[in-house]
Amino acid sequence: MAHNHSHDHQHGPADGNYGRAFALGIALNLAFVAIEAAGGLWANSSALLSDAGHNLSDVLSLALAWGATRLARQPASERYTYGLKSATIQAALLNAALLYAALGIILWDAIDHLLHPTPVDGRIVMLLAGIGILINGFTAWLFRSGQQGDVNVRGAYLHMLTDALVSAGVVVGGGLVLWTGWLRLDALISFGILGLIAYSSWGLLRETVQLSLQAVPPGIDIAAVRQFLLARPGVTQVHDLHVWPLSTRDTALTAHLVRPGGADNAFLQALQAALQAEFSISHCTVQVEDTVPVAGGHGGCEE
């Protein structure tokens, strides 16, 4: 029985050249958090404090995502044979968890303001939220081009875009408070902000949990991969097929292919290129067998 193994590694910059975007986004948002929190206390605005708390969680998210992408650039070692690529998945999962923890804290504060309404300075609310639209919109723009290929970058993009929209809502709310004088409106706006953030972030949380459990990455149909392998010249059977994420950017595949007569380098190289082009699978290990395995006799390492 022949055993041919194919390995393909294609590693671009793990951070997608977004190091400067992360640094600038962190600096701008950290400065704005301090200004917005101070303004929220001065204006006695629950909506501003809610937005400041969420922006602070975004600063932490950006820092974690940036740190993880830098770790992912470390080369493989004898102990970490895939390198530290999975740090990007763990950071994305932690970011999602921290986001929902922050929402809980902000919700508690909003409930207190609803039960015990106090005067709100709508002018300060509108001014600071307007600045937030500019800062968050600009930061989202920094990540717009890379948000389709990396859940970390997409997380940063969605956080910043959501913040820009939320800040716009706060501006409107501040104007309504000035116009109507309804003190509880500020707290009600906070509930709307929290609901929007929770809804928009749910997909990110679900995806990061799936990635952390080594599920097939979103966008890859395992049945389509199996049919694709079966369609390769001479392949009669596929078994022990596994597809899982190495990081938020890299996907791995292992499979056993039954191909009478075995396989040569041309077949394996063509298979590597086809998997990368069709499914963006950057690391594949394929074992080619010239006979159908005995039932129950596969699933582990063979010699």
Rank of each mutant, 00 (worst) to 15 (best):
L127G: 10
P293R: 01
L71F: 06
L271G: 06
L56K: 06
R259L: 07
T139N: 12
G300D: 13
P217H: 02
H5D: 13
D58W: 00
A72E: 01
F32K: 04
A14V: 03
F32H: 15
L188D: 02
W202D: 07
I35C: 11
V151S: 01
T248S: 13
N4L: 09
Q272L: 03
L188V: 15
F191L: 13
L93C: 01
V120I: 12
I135R: 09
T208N: 13
A273T: 10
W182C: 10
L161P: 00
A273Q: 15
A255T: 14
L115T: 11
V177M: 11
L128D: 04
I111P: 15
P117I: 00
T139K: 07
L107P: 13
V166R: 08
L158G: 05
T236H: 14
S46M: 01
F22N: 13
N55G: 06
A97C: 03
A215I: 01
A96M: 03
A168L: 14
G104N: 09
A140R: 05
W179F: 13
L183S: 15
S86K: 13
G53K: 08
F228A: 10
G192A: 06
V151P: 00
R226N: 06
H116Q: 11
A102P: 10
G297E: 05
A23V: 11
P117N: 00
T285P: 11
I133E: 07
A295I: 07
G137N: 14
H113Q: 07
G192N: 14
S247T: 09
